[in-house]
Amino acid sequence: MLHNALQGIKVLDLSRILAGPWCTQNLADLGAEVTKIERPEGGDDTRGWGPPYLESPDGSARMSSYFICCNRGKRSMTLDFSTPEGLATLRGLAAEADVLVENYKAGTLARYGLDYDTLRALNPRLVYVSITGFGQTGPMADKPGYDYVFQGMGGLMSYTGQPDGMPGAGPLRTGVAVIDVTTGMYATTAVLAALYQRHATGTGVYLDIALLDAAVALNANQGANYLISGKNPERSGNAHPNCAPYEVFRCADGYLILAIGNDTQFARFCEVAGLEALAGDARYALNSARIENLPALRAILAEVFPMRTRQAWTDAFDAAGVPWGPINTLEEVFAHPQVVHRRLVQHADHPILGRIPMVRNPMLADAPDARLEPPPLLGERS
């Protein structure tokens, strides 16, 4: 089981908002001892990013759900490293740490002697992670940036949204800070690799992790599509750029996702839908042909799906092995039998706030009974 894999590893968390805390929460979930350094007045900005808030029964304390989502398992220490006392304390902690994660603007911590080169002299084994918007070098290295900026700048929003000519056409951001979360996951992976490397070399390393880099990498197949074809991907609504039919369709009483991934699945779908002729039609038999003729195929399917209810379609799809998916609200997500079976909702007990619901780390499916430490109140357990 992995929940104690990093036991004995000390992490100094100087990060705020989401990308850095997402990384350090992963490390805490894997057993590391994480100390979150916060400003004495207010702490991490996300402590005030509400509502909603979880409040103690007597109303004496509260914590934002945003802060809860990425800060469990840490202890909070308040200090001001612009003062000699605070700086001395922080340098002492860094001298004993295995990992330091920070997301200040490039060059900020160097003014206090808290940069990698200075701290490496105190602690050669330190793995030092800087998470910034644009990285430590380049013409924009000194500029700040937030997730929303990089969803646009990195290309994601250019092909996300309804196509021109459709109702609601225009660029669209994702409903969650996907660049921050992705950057946090890249940072986590880099830290684990650095610790493994340190085991062999005996020395730490500096890691320069940028939200822009993660945003560009997140384009995945869309980025590869452009690099190979030279053509900018266009907004395609809920349709997939490389597979068809792979999108949302309206049934008699709601919507479902049809996710055809190969020609055999398409043939099975056609049999279920009473459209056997399409499977042998040269315009639709192969995936590449279906992509080229997608508007015509979509028009045919848009007439067929409303003839049955969602349940009727999904029962038939399950029987025939046709891939599909529902579009669930979060209420439906957390009540879903598979989600319940996987024990994805877990709780931590806080002495003041009480029972705190959280989502289990997907890496820890083998340890659903591992005790979760709650997110800390400001300065708690320092």
Score class of each variant (00 low, 15 high):
A5P: 06
Q7L: 04
I9N: 01
D13I: 04
L14C: 09
T24S: 07
L27A: 08
A32L: 12
G43W: 06
Y53S: 08
S65P: 02
S65E: 08
R75C: 09
P84I: 01
A88G: 06
L93R: 06
V101A: 12
Y116I: 05
N123H: 09
N123Y: 13
V127A: 08
G133N: 08
G133W: 06
G135T: 15
G135S: 10
G138T: 13
G145A: 07
Y146L: 13
V149Q: 09
V149W: 05
G152E: 03
P163V: 04
P167T: 06
G170N: 13
P171Y: 05
A177D: 13
D180N: 15
V181N: 09
A190G: 13
G204N: 09
A210M: 12
A214V: 10
A215H: 01
A217R: 01
I228W: 08
G230Y: 02
P233L: 00
N242W: 07
R250L: 12
C251F: 11
I257Q: 03
N262W: 00
R268K: 08
F269V: 07
F269I: 00
G274D: 02
E276W: 01
A277L: 04
L286K: 14
R298L: 10
A302G: 07
R308V: 06
W313C: 03
D318R: 11
F334T: 10
D349K: 04
P351E: 02
L353I: 02
G354K: 00
I356M: 09
M358F: 10
R360N: 00
M363D: 03
E373I: 10
